[in-house]
Amino acid sequence: MTAPVFLTGDLPAYRVAIASLSHSAARADGPAGALAVIRGDGAWWEDARRAAAGGAVALLVDEPEAAPTDVPALRGELGVPVLVRRPSLRSGIVDDALRSLDGSALRSVVAECQASFADAPRVVRDAVGWMRVLTGGADGAPAVLRGRPGRHGTTARLRWAGGVGASLIVTLVASGGGLLRVRASGETALEIDLDAPMGRSVLGVGTSAGWLMTPPRHEQPEREALRRALELVRDGSPTGDLAGFGADAATAATILAR
């Protein structure tokens, strides 16, 4: 059985994704009864409101550039599940990392990122997201101890309630960037290298038996996000994507504040 998918705007990668998932997805002419895919540029939450008011059963926000002022209020207003595709926090890689940990505790998490001044909010937001999910910080905001910000970056120490401490190093460059590396140490160690502009992601898992590099993911990010959203709609599973996105955005803004 195919599920209707409504695209709110020019989203060619999702047109391709729908075609490749023809056994489970089909284009819809409107949001009523459909999964609505929302472009993440500008005030995307207005398009989300219109799609929800038009009867969408779930929303998938693609690469949101900014967060609305009051995310909890938006969640309540929309009243439907909201998934968020984030370039450096792909759900499949997150699932692989958490599966590799298999419940084992971590002692520390360190994230390093390099970003242009314009792209820093997104890259730092995704770095914070990795630290949150690996330390078990749920969807809340952490306590933040900032280092002294400089012209070329900053540092921060973060701790979520009930979670281990995490450290962040941010390097700002004039152009380029978009690089993120996360190292987690414990009984099982993780190394995650992400280059969103190049579409490259590498996950290394270290145990007493040695290091294992997980196979590269060849599925396009948009197809992965759409497939996950369709599974959620089918199963009725809850998602904390929007709450996590809002909390990470607020934390990133605190870290980058001058």
Rank of each mutant, 00 (worst) to 15 (best):
A67N: 06
L180G: 00
R217G: 03
E187N: 06
P216D: 07
G236W: 04
A25K: 12
A257W: 03
Q114N: 09
I255C: 01
R157N: 12
R181K: 08
V71D: 13
R157Y: 10
G129F: 02
V202A: 12
V124K: 00
L11I: 14
W211A: 13
R228C: 12
A13H: 14
G240L: 14
E46P: 07
Q114M: 10
T254A: 10
C113W: 00
G136D: 08
L98C: 15
A184P: 08
A184Y: 06
G199M: 07
M213A: 05
G150K: 06
A52W: 09
G54K: 07
L83W: 05
R157A: 14
S201R: 03
R200E: 12
G163E: 09
V16K: 13
R39Q: 14
R86F: 04
G186A: 13
G129Y: 03
A17W: 06
G76P: 13
A13T: 11
S100N: 08
P197K: 05
A25S: 11
R75C: 06
T155L: 05
R90A: 08
S208Y: 12
G103V: 11
R39W: 03
R234C: 14
A25G: 07
A43G: 01
L74R: 07
T154L: 00
T154Y: 00
G244D: 09
V173N: 02
A3N: 14
A166P: 03
L212W: 14
D96W: 05
D102S: 15
F245I: 04
T254K: 14
L190G: 09
G176I: 04
V84A: 08
R132D: 03
T2H: 15
T254D: 09
I169F: 10
G9L: 05
A111P: 02
V182F: 02
G162E: 06
S237M: 13
R228H: 12
A19K: 14
G129A: 05
R90E: 03
A156I: 00
G147Y: 04
P142Q: 02
A184T: 10
P81E: 15
R75W: 04
L203D: 01
V71W: 09
P68M: 02
A3H: 13
A189M: 08
L74K: 04
W45A: 00
A51Q: 04
P68C: 03
W211F: 13
V205N: 08
P121T: 03
A51Y: 05
D62G: 03
T251K: 04
R86P: 02
S185N: 10
R183N: 15
H152V: 13
S108H: 12
P238S: 11
I18Q: 02
L226P: 06
P197T: 02
G204I: 08
A143V: 13
G165L: 07
A225D: 12
A66I: 05
T254C: 12
V123Q: 00
G199Q: 10
T8C: 15
V109L: 07
M131Y: 13
I169N: 08
G186P: 15
L172I: 01
P68Y: 01
W130F: 05
A120W: 00
S185M: 12
R148T: 06
A166F: 09
R157S: 14
S208M: 11
G150R: 07
